[in-house]
């Protein structure tokens, strides 16, 4: 499999393999597709009552400067939350992901989009991300080759639902992968 050919067709890394993206982004002023539609948070909040009549899944794209609390009351109607990393070093979405999973109990897909690189992906997963839109070619190659640069000794109970972590020893903050 050459990743160059599949990057456009199979952009999403989820459950250990590359998959197609079934979601269509509908930015401000753009038509909302018949199928699964991803809307920016502001548009979702403004049009959510009209959108309620639709018969296809809804997703919401959240920028790092937007408060995840605003989305919280509506999560039961949302099948995907995409959190954007405009730069890989912008860690705000890490907090948003944890809040989604741990505070608001969200069980749908939490997807990392934007500047997603392999060295941050294990941390993202521990914060609650379970899908990753990966455009970076070296990252795609490494993932395809089975690499996952995790340090499997965790010193924080992140409480994410995306992977099973079990207590390690007597320290309440230490965990191992299950």
């Amino acid at each position: 499999m050459t990743t160059e050919q599949t990057a456009a067709d199979l952009p999403i890394w989820r459950d250990g393999r590359f998959q197609a993206d079934e979601w269509a982004l509908a930015g401000e002023g753009e038509a909302v597709s018949e199928g699964p539609a991803l809307l920016p948070l502001a548009r979702f909040l403004a049009e959510r009552e009209a959108l309620a009549a639709r018969n296809a899944p809804l997703g919401v794209l959240v920028e790092p400067n937007e408060a995840i609390e605003e989305l919280a009351p509506h999560l039961d109607r949302v099948a995907l939350v995409a959190l954007n990393f405009p730069k890989y070093a912008d860690g705000r979405a890490m907090s948003s992901a944890r809040l989604l999973r741990e505070r608001y109990g969200y069980r749908g897909e939490v997807r990392a989009v934007g500047d997603v690189l392999i060295d941050q992906m294990p941390l993202m997963r521990r914060c609650g991300f379970d899908a990753f839109a990966v455009a970076n070619e070296p990252t795609r190659r490494q993932l395809a080759a089975g690499k996952w640069p995790d340090v499997p000794f965790y010193l924080q109970p992140t409480g994410a639902t995306t992977q099973h972590e079990i207590p390690a020893g007597t320290r309440p903050w230490a965990r191992r992968p299950d």
Partner: peptide, 13 residues
């Protein structure tokens, strides 16, 4: 020290 080591949420402050 332990709790802050490779903290997944707080490594890109």
């Amino acid at each position: 020290r332990q709790w802050s080591s490779i903290h997944p949420e707080f490594s890109y402050l």
